[in-house]
Amino acid sequence: MHLDHELDEKFPHRHTYSAAHPQRPDGTRRALRIGLGGPVGSGKTATVAALCRTLRDQLSLAVVTNDIYTREDAAYLLREAVLPPERITAVETGACPHTAIRDDISANLEAVEDLEDDLASQGAGPLDLILVESGGDNLTATFSKGLTDAQIFVIDVAGGDDIPRKGGPGVSTADLLVVNKTDLAPYVGSDLEGMARDAKEQRGELPVIFQSLRGEPGVGPVADWVRAQLADWTGKAAHAA
């Protein structure tokens, strides 16, 4: 029986594009990949759009959407013109959005791979960051480490203030938990302090950001977190090269 490390030497392309590897086959640094998951309507697409507007002047960005049964999210991002169309790709998920980001990531890897290749061949240079938005799913949906380097779980205050208490893999293990739509808290009677307490209990030291995209500072704190991830990643990739 072959040992895996022996196979790795003989067949280096075995791991091509898995998030485990910081480089593309040609030896250049690949983009950092950040996944955004969470229930339908919590504000994933709105957060992606806001991140694009905030970061696009400093970074080379692209987005992969995973819609459940339409191309709504990709269409929204195109309509809002947050990025040029060649930087947005939609993946179809066969009624099972969590499968496409966790159990069978091949279509998403392909989308990421094509974005990097196509933009490089159009002379747009290497990408810094790819945001992968999951089709809205339940509280157990998380991204495979083979697909993304880090993940943000987005919930909102209107979806029930007991969600942080209920936990689940998304809430408790995501690298960043975003509690969105804080502007709505007074109208739906959500207890933000209670949510913060419960989140802390589930997540320990992992960060939580309360956000409203309807006012200041908007997506700013999440954008700062993304920049920190990228700095970390660029440092690591430089080290590996």
Binding site: G94, D103, D104, A107
Partner: peptide, 23 residues
């Protein structure tokens, strides 16, 4: 050796080759 089980791996609906998104 292992060929019979290898067939099960390949034919398993969970083999991660994208089939789940197609009808």
């Amino acid at each position: 050796s292992g060929a019979a089980a290898a067939l099960l791996v390949l034919a398993d609906g969970r083999f991660p080759a994208g089939g789940h998104a197609h009808s």
